[in-house]
């Protein structure tokens, strides 16, 4: 089976983030890394292809400045190839525009299954994969913690508030996976070296046959009009534990009448 995984390359979440003062969109010009949330989907895709005994994992990623560093991480894990879509007209894209771009790219991949994270770490709208499914005309199963291949179908455990549902879904389909459900493999030295020569196709909006007015800041049809500092929360009392911290906590809980 062929699995296509949507991979987002984001600014390192550990580094301080900032907004472009003019457009009030997230600055994404520095070094980008693969969103950690996507490593679980890449791992699941590799395991599914292994279990099927044939096929390959393809990555799709929409990025500024033809950035490939994050995609190379997933190639080093074992994905066979990647398509990246990079175009100045994509700057300021919202979730729906992103879905339109990725859908156009995924149509070229012959995927039986499309995997994405439930949400990205930086934008966290959480709607893109389902928008993508609708544009592709596929069913979608979100919040998966397990995917089993069963002939032309997949059986999925979908996380719920109180446990999980077992879902049966024909392919092709879009599935989103939550973090922590598999242990993403570390790229081996051989994998890292091999990733450098794996094919990475670079496409523009025009090459995908998309209308530039349906993507980017224009296509987003939304804007940030103001950014304001949220009310600060004051720090209270800080004490070192000298063996009696539990008593101090209980005193505090009594004071606020929780007990």
């Amino acid at each position: 089976m062929n699995v296509t995984v949507c991979v987002k390359q984001i600014p390192d979440p550990a580094a301080p983030a900032s907004l472009d003062p003019a457009t009030k969109t997230l600055m994404r010009d520095g070094k980008l890394i693969m969103d950690d949330s996507d490593s679980y989907g890449v791992e699941m895709a590799l395991q599914l292809v292994d279990a099927a005994g044939a096929g390959e994992v393809t990555l799709v990623s929409m990025v500024p400045n033809n950035e490939v560093a994050g995609v190379r991480t997933a190639l080093a894990m074992g994905a066979a190839k990647a398509i990246i879509i990079s175009d100045d007209t994509l700057r300021g894209s919202d979730a729906l525009s992103t879905a339109k771009v990725l859908a156009a790219a995924i149509r070229r991949t012959n995927a039986d299954l499309v995997i994405a994270a439930t949400e990205s770490t930086d934008g966290y709208t959480g709607t893109m994969p389902v928008q993508l499914a609708e544009l592709l005309g596929y069913p979608a199963v979100t919040f998966a913690r397990k995917i089993h291949l069963d002939g032309s179908k997949v059986i999925i455990e979908r996380q719920t508030e109180g446990g999980y549902d077992q879902i049966e879904c024909p392919m092709p389909a879009v599935v989103t996976v939550t973090a922590g459900v598999v242990e993403p493999r570390y790229p081996s030295f051989k994998g890292i070296m091999g990733a450098k020569s794996k094919p990475v196709e670079q496409l523009s909006v025009a090459e995908l046959g998309l209308d530039a007015s349906s993507v980017g800041a224009v296509g987003a049809r939304q804007e940030v009009v103001a950014v304001a500092a949220a009310p600060e929360r004051e720090a209270g009392e800080i004490i070192e534990d000298e063996g009696d911290a539990h008593e101090r906590i209980v005193e505090y809980l009594e004071r606020i009448k929780v007990i």
Binding site: Y138, P139, I167, E168, P170
Partner: peptide, 14 residues
Amino acid sequence: DATNAARTIARHVE
């Protein structure tokens, strides 16, 4: 259409 093809076959409430 096909977008509605997924089915819940069991529910597990912990």
